[in-house]
């Protein structure tokens, strides 16, 4: 069995076990979240030994060439000398915490050095004790702070902390950015369709502002879905943005209780299909709950949108914390 050396101690990986599972099982605290190769929380670096190519999928070539890899995807085939990927993190602090609804918090994070990113990408926020979660960026790089939308999840460790205990100026670290769901210039007249539910709005709002900032002239239709009206947020801001930009339409939609509030009512994909039965020539962005993302991208595709024009970011939920014995 391959040996893993970390912080001067040697561990063994059991057959079929990932580097992440092997180290966690033996009590080494490695930050992790999605365990599916998306969030990149468990990024490690191999100083010696070759990691399988599958453990470097999705990493920038500049990182993989330096031996960085994702511990959750790495099933080692030879001995590895490992170290933390700490150098890629930037120090940051919480600049503002604002409850937008009972279950959505807007966190503004100030990095101590500039972060180069695109609105719609995501970063991994890490607490000093190592707890790490990924959040999409609703802000533009020119803004002074990173804007994240935090959904309170049941027993969520990070969201619970941010909602109930964290204070402004608390220190955190930020790693990233990652993800390829963002606006690219070059087709300023192409119609854009952005859709998602819940805090899927964070990257969508970011992409929308980025497109406008870059002078996009074609129609931009932003659909935000929620179960009930109280699940919607940022409505005033987005209505204002739509008033200021004649090519932007903001359409909030709910499953129930929308009539009184004058909202579109129905399943989000139905609401969209009603307005846009044909989508050939459009570019689409879908973000948020994985089931909704999968459904919407399929519906967009069947309505004629080219597959290479559909950009998706499905939010993966971190596994629930293990109960302590």
């Amino acid at each position: 069995m391959p040996q893993l050396t970390y912080d001067g101690v040697t561990y063994r990986a059991a057959p079929g076990e990932s580097v992440l599972d092997a180290l966690l099982r033996q009590g080494v605290p490695i930050a992790n979240s999605c365990r599916a190769g998306a969030c990149q929380s468990c990024l490690l670096r191999a100083n010696s030994g070759q990691v399988p190519a599958a453990a470097q999928v999705g990493l920038k070539s500049t990182l993989s060439e330096q031996g960085y890899f994702l511990a959750c995807l790495c099933h080692p085939t030879e001995d590895l000398q490992l170290e933390e990927a700490g150098g890629l993190e930037v120090a940051a602090s919480l600049a503002a915490l604002e409850r937008l609804t009972p279950t959505v918090l807007r966190a503004r994070v100030r990095t101590h050095q500039p972060l180069h990113y695109r609105a719609g990408q995501y970063i991994t926020l890490r607490r000093p004790d190592g707890l790490a979660r990924s959040y999409s960026l609703a802000s533009l790089p020119d803004d002074h702070t990173l804007e994240l939308h935090i959904r309170r999840t049941p027993q969520g460790q990070m969201s619970g902390w941010l909602f109930d205990e964290a204070h402004e100026n608390d220190a955190v670290t930020v790693r990233g950015p990652a993800g390829d769901c963002f606006y690219t210039a070059g087709h300023p007249d192409q119609p854009l369709l952005l859709a998602g539910t819940g805090t899927g709005l964070a990257p969508l709002a970011g992409i929308c502002k980025d497109a406008l900032r870059q002078g996009h002239r074609g129609p931009i239709h932003l659909f935000h879905g929620a179960l009930r009206p109280e699940g919607l947020y940022l409505q005033d801001e987005l209505h204002t943005l739509a008033r200021e930009n004649s090519n932007l339409q903001y359409i909030p939609a709910v499953m129930e209780g929308g009539e009184a509030a004058g909202l579109e009512t129905g399943k989000l994909d139905t609401v969209i299909a009603h307005r846009h039965p044909k989508l050939s020539g459009w570019r689409g962005f879908v973000c948020g709950d994985p089931t909704v993302v999968q459904l919407l991208r399929k519906k967009f595709f069947l309505a004629g949108m080219a597959s290479r024009e559909i950009f998706a970011d499905a939010f993966l939920q971190a596994p629930a914390p293990q109960t302590t014995r």
């Binding site: 999968q294 991208r297 399929k298 595709f301 069947l302 597959s307 559909i310 998706a312």
Partner: peptide
């Protein structure tokens, strides 16, 4: 091709839940 396959009721169920990309 893939759009036709996904729209074809005889076979579309085999593609339920698969990752499109």
């Amino acid at each position: 091709f893939y759009r036709k396959v996904l729209s074809d009721d005889r076979i579309s169920a085999f593609f339920d839940g698969v990752d499109m990309d």
